[in-house]
């Protein structure tokens, strides 16, 4: 691949330099902006409800990368635009690596400064490396691969999973509720501030309640996510919850000591 944007010996700084922006450097920035988000989509394919939720991040990252490339291009005179594209690509791709960098530590401004310094060093190294055409092509190709491979992986999984998926999650024999269709208008939403629910809405909008039903007891189901069994808490984690279980028993509960999830 010939160098599409050789350094000019007569170029000046400023908007005129933008004429040197060709598809290749733009593609490199596009790839570097896409790669981390494509990886995110692939890694979370099993529980990502809507890929579209990622697109605002992608647009913002691409825009940031292109603005950065344009800014670097205008701010320099002799630097190859292809090399500047790699610098811009390193910056936008690194943006999504801060979480890995900060790791278990609580993030603070100091860690951000350290991170920025490392990204700066890497960007400088890539810029220097990009003076070698073969290295520049290799890094550019790598960026494209990092973007394309997870996207293809996601698409292939989507096609394969759709083909293998069972037709329905729920048997069609489930009973139909006797709630009047008009009840859909009566649904009540309680917001987090504890606003009063207009409970009368439900009744007035036609929720069918059989007369003998009113005598049935209320049923409460509280799911405490990831709460371990008492014997495991005591034996493995050193927390005695027998007082909790005893009080539940006093309140009329039957506490099963050795139940298990499916």
């Amino acid at each position: 691949m010939p160098d599409a944007n050789p350094p000019s010996t007569t170029a000046r700084r400023g908007p005129a330099r933008l004429r040197q922006l060709r598809p290749t450097p733009v593609l490199v920035v596009l790839a570097c902006a896409t790669a981390p988000l494509a990886g995110f989509v692939y890694d979370n394919r099993y529980d990502l409800p809507d890929v579209a939720a990622v697109t605002p991040w992608w647009f913002a990252t691409v825009a940031f990368g292109l603005v950065l490339l344009a800014g670097l291009t205008m701010a320099t005179r002799r630097a190859s635009v292809d090399a500047l594209a790699l610098v811009a690509g390193v910056v936008v791709a690194s943006f999504y690596q801060f979480g890995r960098f900060s790791g278990a530590a609580s993030p603070d401004v100091a860690s951000l400064v350290r991170f920025a310094a490392i990204v700066g060093l890497v960007a400088f190294a890539v810029f220097r490396l990009a003076t070698v055409p073969t290295a520049r092509r290799f890094v550019g190709l790598l960026a494209v691969m990092l973007a394309v491979v997870p996207l293809f992986g996601y698409a292939a999984w989507r096609v394969s999973a759709t083909a293998q998926a069972p037709p329905t999650a729920r048997p069609s024999t489930a009973p139909t509720p006797t709630v009047d269709p008009a009840a859909a208008d009566a649904d009540v939403r309680l917001d987090g501030d504890g606003a009063d629910a207009d409970a009368a809405d439900l009744a007035s909008a036609g929720v069918a309640v059989a007369e003998d039903v009113a005598a049935r007891p209320d049923v409460y189901v509280f799911v405490l996510d990831e709460r371990a069994r008492g014997d495991e808490l005591a034996g493995r984690l050193g927390l005695d919850t027998s007082a909790f279980e005893a009080e539940l028993t006093e309140l009329g509960f039957s506490v099963a000591p050795v139940s298990f999830a499916e």
Binding site: L202, V207, V209, R216, D218, V221
Partner: peptide, 21 residues
């Protein structure tokens, strides 16, 4: 919150509490 939404019908209250997760 469930108490505030009470009607004449009996209630089935399902509360998925994230904690201690």
């Amino acid at each position: 919150q469930a108490r505030q939404a009470r009607t004449d019908a009996p209630q089935l209250v399902v509360g998925h509490i994230l904690s201690p997760h």
